[in-house]
């Protein structure tokens, strides 16, 4: 499989720089609130930066904009990673090997690695800046749980979104693939806001694929970070573990679908 994994070092550099700059931006945006709310909580600034989308504020756009910001850069850099590589090299690769499935798995793995690196850099840089500023974990055990949970949820969420776009882009144009998936993503968040506003069938929200990455909507949020959540909204039986399993299942299904599609598809 390693022969199909060609890491693009320019792309890695771009992801590294963008992740770092984004962390600095998120720190500057959120630090004032941490100063007001707590005694130098490190887990607090992580929650404000990566873990909370104010459900009642989605309709106003601004919270949504901040929530989507890291994802937008990721889509810009990686939205066509698989499809463009396929379009560019497929003729040369698939007249040398029968292993289309392996190629798809290798591309999925490298996509996952890019996403992991992007978020890891963001979390790492934020940790460093916040520590230099004087923030620290108020409760070590809870703090590590909160930060790791957010990192895992965001990586899996982004992987699903990017797999969907890349898979669609293999079948249609990249712009249509972006539009369909991104519109679906935003629509599911607005739909969640709508259900919240009318207080009807709220339980549906936990089954929507694009709400799984929002840490603050889960139950079992540690008390040390509750104060940082803007709207006290938690779904029952919506644990972090549930979302991890849910997203792993979706990811597996997408990869199975992808390997089957690529095996049969015409290469134009």
């Amino acid at each position: 499989m390693e022969k199909y994994i060609k890491l693009n070092y320019l792309l890695l550099t771009r992801l590294f720089l963008t992740g770092s700059i984004l962390s600095i931006f998120l720190f500057l945006v959120n630090i004032q609130r941490v100063d007001i709310l707590s005694d130098k909580s490190l887990e607090g600034i992580f929650l404000l930066s990566f873990g909370d989308l104010n459900i009642s504020g989605i309709k106003y756009g601004i919270p949504l904009l901040f929530w989507l910001l890291p994802m937008v850069f990721l889509l810009y850099f990686l939205g066509d990673d698989m499809a463009s590589d396929f379009g560019r090299n497929a003729v040369y690769i698939f007249t040398r090997t029968h292993q289309r499935k392996i190629w798809f798995l290798a591309k999925s793995l490298s996509l996952f690695f890019y996403i992991f690196l992007y978020y890891f850099v963001q979390f790492f840089v934020l940790w460093i800046i916040a520590s230099v500023y004087g923030l620290h974990l108020v409760n070590s055990e809870e703090g590590i749980f909160v930060i790791l949970s957010m990192l895992i949820l965001l990586i899996l969420q982004s992987f699903i979104v990017l797999l969907m776009i890349n898979l669609l882009a293999l079948r249609t144009t990249q712009i249509i693939a972006y539009t369909i998936v991104f519109a679906g993503y935003i629509a599911s968040l607005f739909f969640s806001n709508f259900l919240y506003e009318i207080q009807w069938c709220i339980g549906i929200i936990k089954w929507l694929p694009f709400t799984q990455g929002i840490f603050s909507w889960h139950n079992g949020i540690p008390s040390s970070v509750i104060a940082f959540i803007v709207t006290d909204f938690h779904l029952q039986n919506f644990s972090v573990l549930f979302s991890i399993i849910y997203q792993v299942v979706i990811t597996t299904l997408l990869i199975i679908l992808g390997t089957h599609k690529i095996e049969d598809m015409d290469i134009f």
Binding site: K3, K6, G87, R88, N89, V91, I93, R96
Partner: peptide, 24 residues
């Protein structure tokens, strides 16, 4: 095979591109 416009990995040299394809 050559079909339509030549597509290679843009940020590698010519030799590196062919070496990657030959590695298959």
């Amino acid at each position: 095979v050559i079909i339509e416009s030549p597509g290679f990995w843009e940020y590698y040299t010519g030799f590196k591109n062919l070496k990657l394809l030959a590695s298959i």
